[in-house]
Amino acid sequence: MTPLHGQVEPRFEPVRDAFAANFTHQREVGAALCVYQHGRPVLDLWGGIADVDSGAAWQGDTLSYVFSTTKGITATCAHLLVQRGLLDLDAPVAEYWPEFAAESKAEIPVRSLLSHRAGLAALDTPVPLAAALDWHPMITALAAQRPAWTPGTAHGYHAQTFGWLVGEVVRRVTGRTVGAFLAAEVAEPLGLDFHIGLPASHEPRVGRLILPPPTTTPDDAPTLRRASGVTIPPIDPNDANVHAAQIPSSNGIGTARAIARLYAALIGEVDTIRLLTPATLTAALRPHSDGPDLTLGFPTRFALGYALPSQAFPLFGPGSFGHGGRGGSIGCAHPPTGITVGYVMNRLSHGVQTDTRFANLAAAINACL
């Protein structure tokens, strides 16, 4: 049996059991789980192996690459700017980023970027990875790209481009990258060990991901292939150069406790800090996209940067919001119960529909409430 470390309040002991069961029955290798309720931690656990090559154990401060779980954190940065009166969701993106107006994009509002409705999920010509990691070549490519569908008429998951699109708006408004804004305005005040653009000094703490065997994207999903392949070569999530860059859709690196704590500060106070006011959060969570997803090929539901429960992102069930990432990581909140959850791991699954690890944990948490 894999030893677990950390703390758990007695009433959440069944969640510890479910977490342990994932190692025994679900091939968990290394993972961490943190649960907050009403702004304070009630469970913070970790265990297993962080690097199967070296055999290094998962520690309390092991960092994990969380793929699209990053999107909810990037969206939070945008909503902070809305709350401060610096960003208007109904203004054209081109008002902040003039070059974006090319190829009939002058009228696309900011909210379309956050709700996957801009038609920019893919690029006609992928950008060399080294150039994309330098930021500006990808921004130039997106500004020059013609939408794949009439913006606002449908939605399709912007798997990679979401972060560059929203991130460039944040940069134009603040003069700072998303990573710098996150560090100063969110992570530092809340004491979060979460990064978009990882400082080199933290690289030794990053767990090494165990990637699943490659699969072939179905022939009937060409948009998904293109949305996942906006760089050549593809992004390697174990590459330190990728860790140091800023890909605000998918290269966030942090701990489960940082993710749970951030979501706790979205729905209430954490040590006197609340990130978004109730009014800002309510507006951010209004459904904007619901139904067939032109990228994924099955129905999805999105608010403004946050996923809502759907086949693609089950989250914590009805009433929850947040975002999951490739392979199984997740950050989410359930305002009716005051519960927020961060879950990270290093063995990636093929997809949320076949991976039951977080579903097992969510069921155990629910049973404790």
Rank of each mutant, 00 (worst) to 15 (best):
A265E: 00
F321Y: 15
F298N: 05
R171V: 02
S68Q: 03
V127L: 03
V52C: 09
I247D: 13
F194Q: 01
A256Q: 04
R27Y: 10
F321T: 08
G305E: 09
A102M: 07
R286E: 04
L369C: 14
A101Q: 06
R117W: 00
I339P: 03
T150N: 10
T277W: 03
L190H: 06
P92T: 12
T150Q: 14
D90C: 03
T216Y: 01
L133W: 12
A359F: 04
S310M: 02
L190C: 06
L262G: 02
V42N: 04
P335W: 01
H334T: 03
R171L: 05
S54H: 01
M345A: 13
I253M: 03
A367L: 13
L296M: 12
L4E: 08
E103I: 04
E9R: 02
Y306G: 13
A279E: 12
G305Y: 09
A57H: 06
G297S: 09
A362D: 06
V169E: 01
G163C: 07
P278G: 09
I267C: 00
V178Y: 15
D355M: 00
T153S: 12
G297Y: 05
G351Y: 11
I235P: 13
G324H: 00
F302E: 05
L113W: 00
G291Q: 12
F19G: 07
I73G: 03
F194K: 00
I49R: 12
L211C: 04
G291T: 14
T282Q: 11
A130R: 05
V178M: 14
S310E: 02
A102K: 07
S115K: 01
V8H: 02
A258T: 00
R257P: 00
A364L: 13
P292I: 07
S250D: 04
D220S: 06
G254M: 07
L120H: 06
F100T: 11
G207T: 06
W149L: 08
Q37H: 10
Q145C: 07
P222V: 00
V15Q: 03
D88T: 01
G297H: 11
E99T: 15
V166R: 08
N241Q: 15
E99A: 15
L209D: 02
D44A: 01
L296H: 05
R176E: 14
T354V: 15
R357E: 14
D88V: 02
P248K: 08
T217R: 11
R357H: 06
A264H: 04
N346P: 14
A21K: 15
S228A: 15
G229Q: 12
A227R: 13
N241G: 12
T24H: 08
T125Q: 14
E188G: 05
G48F: 07
A256W: 11
G297P: 10
T69Q: 09
S250K: 00
N22A: 15
T69A: 15
N360G: 10
T340N: 03
F67I: 08
G85Q: 11
L123K: 02
E103H: 07
V242H: 10
L165K: 15
G351T: 11
G291V: 14
E185G: 00
V173S: 04
V166P: 07
M345I: 11
P318C: 11
A245W: 09
L87F: 06
T272H: 11
T272R: 14
P41L: 10
